[in-house]
Design a binder for these strands. Sequence first.
RNA 1: GUGCCUAUGGUAUAAUGGUUAUUACGUCGGUUUGUGGAACCGACAAUACGGGUUCAAUUCCCGUUGGGCACCCCA
Length: 461
Amino acid sequence: MVVKKNAVKSKPAIKKIVSSKAKNTVVKGKVEKTAKTYSVLRGMRDILPKEERHWSKLYHVAENLAEYFQFGRIETPILEEASLFVRSVGKGTDVVDKEMYIFEDRDGTKVCLRPENTAAVMRAYISNGLWNQAQPVKLWYLGQMFRHDRPQAGRYRQFWQVGFETLGSADPAVDAELIMIAHNFYSDLGLPVTARLNSLGVPAERERYRNELVNYYRGKRSYICGDCKARLTRNPLRLLDCKNKECLEVKETAPQIIDYLGAESKNHFMKVLEYLDVLEIPYQLDHTLVRGLDYYTHTVFEFYGPEGEEGAQSALGAGGRYDLLAEQIGGKATPGCGFSLGLDRVVLAWREYMSKNNQELPKQKMEIYVAQLGEEARRVALRLVNDLRGSGIKVGFNFSKGSLKIQMELADHAQVPYVLIVGQKEVQDKTVIIRDMESGIQEVVDQKKVEALLKRKLGHS
RNA sequence: GUGCCUAUGGUAUAAUGGUUAUUACGUCGGUUUGUGGAACCGACAAUACGGGUUCAAUUCCCGUUGGGCACCCCA
């Protein structure tokens, strides 16, 4: 066998696996299985039709919201220059330091699979000169992100996010609008969530707060857990996340960032809250909420799933304002605000919630089943199926089945109200049998009149 | 990245250091292609991979890989 150059690399691995498989099959005396079998990579997954049904509902909800609130959909590449995220998300964050899929492209460029999309959207805004359009520019996206994390339920290495971003306005009304949209997304699904929010102010204020926090914790060093001691030097704001009992007490009397905000920042935040009150969107202030990515300023928020299902992955979506991001990645100063929703988690939480409350998730609905008998009938039925499509009737059929019994069974499983039966006799007479599956009553109808009759029976206008 | 738990047909499960690995769902089919819902019958299909202990391993031990939980972090 001639092996091409580019195949050389994979050759040994294949050989090894083939030999081990071969041993197995010889022992069992069964048909030889020579090819390697593949499965999905760790943290990746196939979403099969049965589950995808739920996903498409989410897509529709997002699409409708975008249309209503006039966000334009943006598609950015999955592959970006790695430094885009290093500069925006921030060195020192786990997302950048430990979790990026980063590699050298063939020309030596350091590229990565996007770990999030806000920075990429901002990059697109800058590189396409969108500041020349009417401001603010409202964009939304739907796509996969990649982080090399350790997989858990609701956490994958390739995961889906829907995001909405409003660029070019610092107005607190924008923050409120976005929180409202995110909130609507969940409520359109019938999934109750709670919003938590906080303000991080501007970097100088955050810095001052950080110092105070460190001072405070230094004094209590002997009362806190090991993790927190490490956080104290590495990432002080994370001290606020600790769930350890001993630390909770210390946390309770810790300084709160809100007290370190200047008048302008405070005012901005108050405005956001006022707007949310007007919108009657419930929220909880959470002074321990500190978003992980460096680019956040002012408002930050997170959405949590229904109570009781408090897993570690209960944050279903999050976002905030990022007024300094544009400059960080080399653009001219452009305020922005946005959020992204983790669809893998939303689907998970949604399904759980719905089944717990015995609510129905969307199903593929079939209205008619077409059964055929014999070659001639198959042709007529095939034609019939295609014609019915024009009238918007959802038709099920399986022409690879020969027996009527089995086709009836399939129709029964599909829970259709009517079955059309075409056999030799009907072909001759140019008729079709319509069987009412509930009553079992059958009528013979002229083929030409089937469509109109079905429309009437199914209540189509 | 750290710690703990786990792995049996496509799915959910039973069992065992020793003949042919249980059951249900599923899929395919059932008295030569004309009728579904109940019931019945048959077929398909599994001990993740690699090593060790043993006369004998699906079972015990180790490693790898996958999955789960908690931490870290995050959506």
